[in-house]
Design a protein around this nucleic acid. Sequence first.
DNA 1: GTAAAAACTTCAAGTACTTTAAGTCAACGG
DNA 2: CCGTTGACTTAAAGTACTTGAAGTTTTTAC
Lengths: 151, 151
Amino acid sequence: MTATSSPHTYTIKEAAALTGLPASTLRYYESVGVIAPVGRGETSMHRVYTDGDMNLLVGVACLAATGMSVSDMRRYVANGALGAAAADEQIQLLEERAERLAAEARLIKIRQQYVKIKIEFWRATAAGDDTEVARLTAAARDLAQKIKPVK
Amino acid sequence: MTATSSPHTYTIKEAAALTGLPASTLRYYESVGVIAPVGRGETSMHRVYTDGDMNLLVGVACLAATGMSVSDMRRYVANGALGAAAADEQIQLLEERAERLAAEARLIKIRQQYVKIKIEFWRATAAGDDTEVARLTAAARDLAQKIKPVK
DNA sequence: GTAAAAACTTCAAGTACTTTAAGTCAACGG
DNA sequence: CCGTTGACTTAAAGTACTTGAAGTTTTTAC
């Protein structure tokens, strides 16, 4: 490795591009304590993101994408600093995410079926095929019944 | 119940599941005038969604999914652009929605993998298995790369 | 039947960003 | 050196839901 360090740093714009989070959201997460205050430029007030910051932020972006709340993200990140001691709680937070994702996947399948039926419905409507329109309307209604067992 | 009539109506919960919009959002859209006030039960105050309401709402859900603002949705619906006469446009919207749902399903699978890896990561951390921790850290990073382009 | 549970209602307050306003700082052309 | 362009800063206001509380109604279970 060359020399002491490759202290590669990123501007907020680069950090936004790499995490997929808007710059405004990065500032927001910092302001509400999801992440610790980021370092600033010597002369300017501009935020300077390190590789370590970027690693953390990529993880935070993933959690945000699973719908984790800001307060849970705050907990999760704080626990991350604690290391192995907090493993149990981390696992619990993650298992809640897994459950939510599974439920979401089930609903998406139903919606895909529903959208498919509706496309056929509008084609039949445009074609003036009243019989088919009635059949598809009933099919859509049947799909509603499938929702109940999902609970 | 005798089969004299098939009312083809939906509760707010069914409407929510089929449109993909939460019940609270359906009420909200009604309150801010994106959709006209929905019919109510004879004896109760409960909303009763007809097939016509559902067709409109599915269209609205498509618009919402593409990030259209509430004020634009209001104007769009008021213009009748989501009426029965606009079957072609409905189909166009629904096909975009089908694509979006497919993309969402893919994304959810990736997120499920990410959460799974993170759970394993914390289990390995708790067990002090440094080799496994390193492997899972790398796996999480690889997966993060897959998520970026989708967003 | 009656009684508990689940689903619905409104309204107010909360959440998670997002945008806007007003200003600072750094780089480039003239 | 000076002006202008553009990225950055904070703070406050705005947007689009979301949740909670308190109270009906409908469904379920005995």
